[in-house]
Write a protein that binds this DNA or RNA. Structure first.
Lengths: 309, 309
DNA sequence: GTCAATTACGTTCTCCGTAAGGATG
DNA sequence: CATCCTTACGGAGAACGTAATTGAC
């Protein structure tokens, strides 16, 4: 009780041409083989579908009934294959990404735009979430790809480091720090300091700094970096944010300067759920980010050597 | 680019069980063979549909897309096969019959009722038509089975004789003829005679009688036999109708008596279009009528012998 | 160590093509 | 007798089962 697509196609070809020889040709098969296919089909369906002699080929009553179903079956098969292969061919599909807000404002959108230009049929969805949620969404399958400062449990996730980023000091433009090419930790002592929310990744990796540096506590703690920019501008103090978050803080009257200190860099990882293959579209996105990383490495490697020497 | 029903079924089984071993068992196949089937399917579709290791089996993104199509394909296949095989199994279907009005009033309905009792799911359609139209309807496929006094061109139609029927004289109950056990042609001489329509089969086979017998022409010509009964009762004359049409003519005040004369019998044929197989349902109906005929023959054969001897 | 999926491999069966056969107009 | 479907038959490949292997927990 099988029913292969080929047999259904053969049936339709014969029903349309009403001639074995033509139908066989359309199916790229010899006439005897085609005849056998029809016989096989009739055996499997359990009833004769065509009345035929050497001159005329017509549908039986049961053949007419079968014909309608055959068309539907063939249509469903075509549609299903087209649907799946459209996704494989990147003409359709969807990529869902989770990333921290800092990267969601500029770094990631730029890359998403490039991807969209190459594959306009693929829907892109971006969830800008805090660190823990990112891994949750990966685990539950809500997103295909995560970008995060924490790589998660290696047994659960496959993670590759995309880049490292340093930290920048954000201060009012009329502050003395604003004119410098970089800032050291010593220069921040006794400064009023605006904290970021404890759940955010920024707080996480700067925790030791904040706890040990001799900041003057302002009592301020913000969730959104854009808020932080406003507070700095209004003179409530200074803050430290990751390199890629600088753009969000900046506004008229606010300046950012690189912080030069040990332990103030963080790694950003590209993460996927382990044991779960990516969709074709997601895989291409993943590869795009990886390829870019490798290109950057090749370009920056000589510079590092100079710095190291 | 095939896609056999077995592969689709295998996919659905695995998607539901999430275990190769169980799915293989459900498909009545060994586990390795089942594994190969999935691999084949993935090759044909062109993309991996399941992520799997020895512990877990999950759909890929493409697999999820395919799953929806697979269910539709499987459903269409099931529905189509069920539809066709329902007809083969006589649980559904349709039989369309064309028959002359004389047989449509009683003889045929009785047999249709018997058929319906055996196969309540099969729709029966009866077209009570005149002789020419019967063959037309067969030719065009409007009906599956014809019952007719003319068997048509043997190159076009397959016909078997169902029975022969004699003719009966229809007269008022107070007519002298009404008391007789039978009537001869001689007794009808100079009688007022009511003609049936020239297109009807009754006229056709009685034509030579009407033309040569010495009837008194009434000028009356009716199409429907029920009309004829009324005219006879009203005293416009007598008429001659085939045996099976007697019932239609009879009403209060009208009597029918067998006509004993050469050339006043006609054969009724069971007819089908040549080179076109009958649907399962129609075939069963055909066989039912044939079987009944043979049973009648066996029963009436001795009687005939007596009459002949 | 155990359980489950997969690979290896020999066998069977399906399915195709070529060539001959048979029916129809 | 020409056309077209079907049967006959041999070979290529598909698909299955058994047994061995790999991999995860």
């Amino acid at each position: 009780m099988n029913l292969s697509g080929r047999l259904v196609d053969a049936f339709i070809a014969l029903e349309e041409t009403r001639r074995f020889s033509l139908a066989a040709e359309r199916c790229n098969i010899s006439a005897p083989a085609f005849s056998q296919m029809i016989t096989r089909l009739e055996t499997q369906v359990g009833v004769r579908l065509f009345d035929r002699d050497t001159r005329k080929v017509t549908l039986t009553a049961e053949g007419e009934v079968f014909a309608q179903g055959a068309r539907r079956i063939a249509a469903e098969m075509r549609a299903t294959l087209a649907e799946v292969q459209g996704r494989v061919g990147l003409s359709s599909g969807r990529v869902q990404i989770a990333a921290p807000p800092s990267l969601s404002s500029w770094w990631l959108p730029r890359r998403m735009a490039r991807f969209r230009a190459d594959h306009p049929g693929i829907a892109l969805r971006l969830a800008d979430v805090v660190s823990d949620r990112c891994l949750d969404m990966l685990r539950s399958g809500e997103v295909d790809i995560g970008i995060n400062a924490q790589s998660g449990n290696p047994l659960e996730f496959d993670a590759v480091r995309l880049f490292q980023e340093g930290s920048w000091v954000v201060c009012p433009s009329d502050d003395a720090l604003a004119g410098q090419s970089h800032v050291t930790l010593r220069q921040l002592r006794h400064r009023k300091f605006i904290q970021t929310a404890r759940s955010g990744s920024v707080y996480q990796y700067l925790r030791h700094l904040v706890e040990h540096a001799d900041f003057e506590d302002t009592g301020l703690e913000v969730t959104h970096l854009s808020t932080l920019g406003g507070l700095v501008r209004a003179g409530f103090g200074v803050s430290i944010v990751p390199e890629h978050a600088v753009g969000i803080c900046l506004q008229k009257g606010v300046t950012a300067v690189p912080l030069q200190a040990e332990g103030t860099t963080r790694s950003i990882y590209l993460i996927r759920r382990r044991g779960h293959s990516l969709s074709s579209a997601a895989d291409v996105f993943w590869q795009m980010l990886l390829g870019e990383r490798d290109a950057d490495r090749a370009a920056t490697a000589p510079a590092r050597k100079r710095r190291a020497s």
